[in-house]
């Protein structure tokens, strides 16, 4: 019976909310909030057609490319900057400033520098979401335990082996925290780069629906964005649990003791 109870907890509130929503739109149709049934129909019509190919997949592709590049470059540069003391001292204040710049302002700047192109949108995503990864990696590299580092040295673990077996795993909790921020900023930037400067893509399509007052269609677009967000979050959590199993286990033991 326990799984039944878990299931009830899982779907209980969402079902209740949908029911309330359905009841509220039952009598008098609301201009802003379409009824669940209409929205469901619209969702199928709008998104299960060529829009997947023309808008959804290209948007996702740009997001993926941008986020992957930001994570790759961020970790690589973070390893370098974090390991070289003077380099870190030299660059850290400047990088902190870049991190503090709200990433959306990069959209007009890069639009100007690169024109309205796909690569501009990818660069917007990279340059907006690299900072949390980069700065967290630097912090993680800096915080490698002294005794552990000495142990590695006495056993001759140096160079690339040191990065692979010591520095990278040791910094991984910070790196993963940076990646989490990177993902949500990346999604924001994907949407607004398309809203601001584009003729296709998810963000553009949703704004078009809003401008033409196609309310159920607009809502269906919001739902698509929501689903993407949820999917990314689940993939991240799944990965994080695997990568940081040792970290969470160790914390649990420490907290228990």
């Amino acid at each position: 019976m326990t799984w039944l109870k878990s299931l009830a907890y899982l779907v209980g509130l969402p079902l209740l909310l949908i029911l309330i929503w359905w009841a509220a739109t039952l009598g008098r149709p609301n201009f802003f909030f379409p009824a669940p049934g209409i929205l469901m129909d619209t969702f199928g019509e709008v998104w299960f057609g060529e829009r997947i190919l023309s808008d959804v997949l290209p948007s996702l592709g740009r997001l993926l490319a941008g986020v992957a590049a930001a994570i790759g470059i961020g970790i690589a540069a973070g390893l370098l900057i974090g390991s070289v003391k003077w380099l870190r001292a030299l660059l850290e204040p400047t990088l902190e400033f870049f991190r503090a710049v709200p990433p959306p302002v990069l959209v007009p700047v890069l639009m100007l520098l690169m024109g309205i192109t796909d690569s501009m949108k990818v660069v917007v995503i990279i340059s907006g979401c690299i900072w949390p990864v980069l700065l967290n990696t630097i912090e993680g590299v800096r915080a490698v335990d002294g005794v552990l580092s000495d142990s590695a040295r006495t056993y001759g673990v140096a160079g690339w082996a040191r990065v692979r077996y010591l520095v990278l795993p040791s910094a991984s909790p910070q790196i993963m925290a940076g990646i989490r921020q990177c993902l949500s900023i990346g999604l924001i930037l994907m949407v607004i780069s398309e809203m601001f400067a584009s003729s296709s893509g998810l963000g553009f399509t949703i704004v078009q629906f809003q401008r033409s007052f196609a309310i159920p269609e607009m809502w269906s677009g919001i739902i698509v964005l929501g689903l993407i967000g949820v999917a990314m979050s689940f993939i991240f959590q799944w990965t994080e649990r695997r990568v940081l199993r040792w970290y969470h286990g160790q914390k649990e033991v420490e907290n228990a003791g």
């Binding site: 335990d145 002294g146 005794v147 552990l148 000495d150 142990s151 077996y165 010591l166 795993p169 040791s170 991984s172 040792w246 970290y247 160790q250």
Partner: peptide, 9 residues
Amino acid sequence: EYGRSLFPW
């Protein structure tokens, strides 16, 4: 410091 000389991962 045995807790800090072994690789926890």
